[in-house]
Design a protein around this nucleic acid. Structure first.
Lengths: 219, 219
DNA sequence: ACAAAAGTGTTAACTTTACACCCATGT
DNA sequence: ACATGGGTGTAAAGTTAACACTTTTGT
């Protein structure tokens, strides 16, 4: 096959977390030109003896220092002018984790979580990539496709926190009493008995998802 | 960049139609070895100056002889042993059309619609590809993501036909009266006044989707 | 007449929506 | 005491679920 058919592919990971009711994404800061100081998604080029899924998992593990996690394919970007020299195809993946599990190591590189509604200056077309992947992830959240809510909230949370997250994702306010009723009366959440403390105002009750009831549940 | 980073990519189209309450897929028969006589998805290799979306649309138009249509990215397949010689990455797309609009031309190649529940012998990993893409499409149907139902039923249909389609996709039977009520009482469908004829049994009423009401509607 | 497929109504359970005041903590 | 944020009830409307018989056509 002629060399016209040789394509360069990079794999990109968009790593999400639900934190403080926000949908956040993990980015690192580019250390050298071009786009020095701009933020980028963790990525790597694909060799022709590697699978994309393996590569995406490798990037995820390297970025988060977590050994386990689920990654899912998202969109592919093949515009001819993504990069200046020659076309490089980007295959995006998304992963979901708990912000508290990721230790940010500032040795060689700077990295941080950003609210998806307040992204910093991003290199290349990474902003467009994040927007596209985020749109897809939001659709999955709204339909709870693949039980994605359990990935976002594997541990304890307060109902106000969950509600803020929903409001962020759906882009609209909801009534607190109705929100509580929906989750509590349908037994979708379990009361852990623990209360939050430290912040101003009345403490909240910590819940956790009732995995049995949530699995396959369209919320 | 070393030649280890040269990847071959093929674009595959999984073309769907809702017909007689079934979810069908369009396949062509392979004319030469290997896998002579087996069925395959329409596909083509990607040159490094072509975008995947353009290539997928080109395949769609060539296959269906339709000039317009919507194609959507689905999964990517990058297993190292998809093909015997070297790894070829497959990017799948799906398209939805009306079976009646596609004229099957039997000049050079044989092609046909197949029920996704009764697939013929397929070449390479095309069966696995169809299964994976179909799973994704079914999830979209159940949630009406991207108003996919309007793509499947752009024209008239009977409620029994729509119900059979749902039953196929969800894998369970539904109550006819409740099904009617859901669509009629919520004004999701409009009575065209026309009745079907020709088949045995009582004629059905032809409906069409109320596009305004269906847009964004989670059914 | 019979077979095949489509049409139709009612009730109970459940879910959603709309709406406003009180409670527990930190300062 | 007051500011902050969390917790809670009720009634009406809408949706879903469970249930069987009748109607229209073709043969």
């Amino acid at each position: 096959m002629s060399e016209n058919y040789n394509n360069i592919i990079e794999t990109l990971d968009v790593i999400y977390a639900a934190s403080g009711g926000k949908l956040k994404v993990f980015l690192t800061r580019k250390k050298d030109d071009p786009y020095k100081g701009y933020w980028i998604l963790p990525s790597d080029f694909l060799k022709n003896d590697e699978t994309l899924d393996d590569k995406a998992m490798e990037i995820y593990q390297k970025t988060t220092s977590l050994s386990n996690g689920k990654i899912s394919q998202s969109k592919i970007f093949s515009d001819l002018n993504r990069y200046p020299d020659r076309r490089i195809i980007a295959q995006s993946y998304f992963a979901i984790t708990d912000e508290r599990l990721v230790t940010i190591k500032n040795e060689n590189e700077e990295s941080a979580w950003f609210d998806t509604d307040e992204l910093p200056k991003l290199a290349y077309d990474h902003e467009a990539i994040i927007l596209a992947v985020t749109k897809e992830v939001k659709t999955k959240i709204i339909n709870n496709t693949d039980d994605i809510l359990l990935d976002f909230f594997p541990n304890d949370f307060t109902l106000p926190e969950l509600q803020k997250f929903y409001e962020t994702v759906m882009g609209k306010k909801m009534d607190r009493r109705n929100f509580y009723k929906k989750f509590v009366s349908q037994d979708l959440v379990l009361d852990t008995g623990v209360k939050t403390a430290g912040s101003s105002g009345r403490p909240g009750v910590l819940y956790r998802f009732n995995v049995e009831k949530m699995r396959g549940k369209r919320v």
